[in-house]
């Protein structure tokens, strides 16, 4: 039983890391639907680097770097060129899917290294995730930079006349978002399931994306959501544990999306909007071109 919980927490860590990057990204007004692609890149290149060098640190460094680069690429398309952010994001996903399959294929199979040691039964990344969640919450809501970042995502022209560099803030956010996705991918491939396989992620990135909407753009809720989604994911791997026969592995996997849709319905109700205002950053997905 404890093992099941620990595995759930490990799964949730990946959602937390990727979702947190995407949350910061979206708070600045940039939607990156391609985080599954960035995770694939981070996982695959990190996996290969570690397998070749035998060093975990190099693997994570490579994942962070490729994540940052892909984040920057999305930034270049959506901030500098002002193209449709969904199109750019989908492009990154398709690129990630195709290219990592090609690059990773010769490395199919297990990593073959000693496992990363756990701390108190769960991965050290879980604790890192908790720290990052708290830090992101503090930065977003208690610091001047956080206020600037949120303002850029709500109304970039207001931010600009207040003396904020909109493009730089958004570039920072997309780069951070990319790094976190790359890192989350590496945590998957180097710790959670250290075996390279064709299309091994199967939607982790998309669940992380859904998680951001679920969280109503709040890191603390995002963390709670990732625990829930991690549990649901783990149930999907062990469908015999709960409601066997009724819920298959594939049905379990749809549950996070169903919950997210319910949350989206909730935040778009009259009741919610008149009471809480709009949760979604107003300028999300809108290119800022002057």
């Amino acid at each position: 039983m404890w093992q099941f919980v620990a595995r759930s927490l490990d799964a949730s860590t990946i959602f937390t890391l990727a979702g947190l990057g995407e949350l910061v990204d979206q708070r600045s007004g940039i939607l990156n639907v391609g985080l599954e692609g960035i995770m694939l890149f981070g996982a695959t290149l990190g996996f290969i680097a570690t397998k070749v060098t035998g060093n975990y640190l190099i693997g994570f460094a490579v994942a962070l770097l490729i994540g940052a680069l892909l984040g920057l690429m999305h930034g270049f398309f959506s901030i500098t060129l002002g193209v449709d952010q969904v199109v750019s994001g989908m492009g990154i996903w398709i690129l990630g899917f195709g290219l990592t399959t090609y690059i990773g294929n010769p490395y199919t199979g297990p990593l073959g290294l000693e496992r990363i040691p756990t701390v108190g039964g769960v991965s050290p990344f879980f604790y890192l995730g908790v720290v990052l969640v708290l830090l992101s919450w503090f930065i977003l809501f208690k610091t001047s930079f956080g206020l600037q970042l949120r303002s850029v995502g709500e109304n970039p022209s207001v931010a600009e006349v207040s003396g904020i560099n909109v493009k730089r803030t958004r570039y920072l956010a997309v780069t951070f978002g990319g790094m976190m996705s790359g890192f989350a991918g590496a945590v998957y491939a180097l710790y959670y399931n250290p075996v390279w396989n064709y299309n091994f992620l199967m939607g982790w990135g998309f669940i992380s994306l859904a998680l951001v909407f679920f969280s109503m753009w709040n890191p603390l809720i995002l963390f709670g959501g990732s625990l829930l989604f991690g549990l649901l994911w783990q149930l999907s791997l062990n469908p015999q544990l709960f409601l066997p026969g009724l819920m298959s592995r594939y049905l379990w996997r749809t549950v996070p999306f169903v919950i997210t849709i319910l949350v989206l319905v909730l935040i778009s109700t009259k009741w919610f909007r008149t009471r809480w205002g709009a949760a979604k950053p107003e300028a999300l997905g809108v290119p800022y071109v002057k």
Binding site: S144, Q148, S151, E154, N155
Partner: peptide, 20 residues
């Protein structure tokens, strides 16, 4: 030029050098 979702105070101190 105001951020509708933010408070009056947050709007006023946005980008202010002394906001710290």
């Amino acid at each position: 030029k105001l951020v509708a979702a933010h408070t009056v105070l947050e709007n006023i101190i946005l980008g202010h050098p002394r906001a710290g």
